[in-house]
Amino acid sequence: MKRRRAITVIGLLALSTAVWAQFGGLRSFSTPPITTDVSPTDAKHEFAWSRLRYNAAYGSDYGGYGGYFYGYGGRFSGAWSRDYPKADIVFLAALRRLTRVDARSYQQVVDLDSDDIFNYPFVYAVQVESWTFTEAQAKRLREYLLKGGFLMVDDFHGTVDWEHFLTGLRMVLPAESYPITDLSDDDEIFHVLYDIGHRIQVPGEQYVVTGRTYEKDGYVPKWRAIRDDKGRVIVAICHNMHLGDAWEWADDSEYPEEFASMAFRVGIDYVMYSMTH
């Protein structure tokens, strides 16, 4: 009986949290402010911003869908869709405006259950502390990266998230062959379009409320990478930062411009690097 009550309470809590998130949560938007063209014509572009939909470590499927959970939480449900789709759309607008990349104006969701991912050599994943893979998925992602694909991971914070991230990552790229290294100011990835020298920690939207640039114990931003045998970055790791939120809330007057600018410049340099190396 006690157990049934507990389940009921948890269920009610989850439902109320979802409703709360739906109607605002910490912050939300209902309609993306950027106009997108999803016509078949607009699909025919060179670059598509591809967001990786993965299995959550504690869920049985891909979890929920973007737009339902914002700010904290989401770890156990629909983690891949954090900030989706506004972050993607705003970033694409910047990419189209600031570069000569022929980019589609709206995002693409890819997963590791089909070979379709091989048509998108750049892929973005968030909240990767929760990711996990089946053996087939891990193999497909490894092959994707070794053939020339590029993975950018973002929005995970602190020691525990890092450990969880590694658990999933090492299913794909074993540690002995693919060590993780820190990116320095001199690394080419920070100089393809913008010369990014002084890098700052880019906080999530929670900064507006808390004034903290970090989450959990992720006090120091970690710009890290995994390289292939030719020294080219194949996985760009943005740990202890939340670039996605910075793109998503770039049009919020309360979110500091310097964070948004840094996030755009880093994101564009990463895309440029993925298309040149």
Binding site: F47, T99, V101, G148, L193, K230, M275, T276, H277
Partner: peptide, 30 residues
């Protein structure tokens, strides 16, 4: 004239050939 996947992969193929030095100039922005 514009960032393209073909550019990246051509570069990677040339990188694997020690007899070729592929020097490139790419218009990343205007």
């Amino acid at each position: 004239g514009e960032p393209r996947w073909e550019y990246k992969f051509i570069r990677r193929a040339a990188d694997d050939d020690r007899m070729l030095r592929l020097v490139s100039m790419l218009r990343t922005s205007e």
